[in-house]
Amino acid sequence: MSEYINDSPDVLDDDQLPSRQGDGSEELLAGFASKETLHRKKLLLRIDHSVKSQLLQNIEQLDKLLSLNSPPELVSDESTEESSDEAASEGYEEDDEEVDPVDTQEIYDLTAHIQDPEHPLSLGQLSIVNLDDIQVRDDGNPKNMAEIVIRITPTITHCSLATLIGLGIRVRLERALPPRFRITILLKEGTHNSENQVNKQLNDKERVAAACENEQLLSVVSKMLSTCK
């Protein structure tokens, strides 16, 4: 996993990712300090390709120190990255859950921040997860079944990690969503050489259950999900 199969994917900046309108995230992201640090982090990542790089960590530390003197809403870049996500989910929790259907933006917010297993970037930034490729059928009633279909776009057609990415998405959604959801995860048509094989595996409940009892696999998935919250 040390060598990147895809060296120069089209990377979206985090503030380019679709987010819910009018939830205050634009204002948060518009803050000068946060936007600048985000941008800098992204430039550094392109040079170094690793979140573990000493330079990047030093600069992050510096940003954190500087942010201590900033107004309260302009926190460190790390948490700013998640701000649109948090704002959206907090808004959701305040509402009465019984009558509030889950929508595609919510599913996007839950999955777009999962870290790619080989790039130090999120599935949203790499356009593996796209808002337009999520379908939700939910009336919001916890006593009825609901359905989610999410189509993922691997970065290359022979990506050996497509199954792992799909597993990460499934684990994330099963942990975060109420039990009424039946989740179908598919590779977007024509994006992978062994599309049917991967699709079959990703939607086999028994295989997923067994994978989740495999400690090695589970620790990789946990690492991918560590960037969510």
Binding site: P142, K143, P179, R182, K205
Partner: peptide, 8 residues
């Protein structure tokens, strides 16, 4: 329908 509520 829904033999184990919304579960499989």
């Amino acid at each position: 329908d829904l033999c184990h509520t919304v579960y499989e």
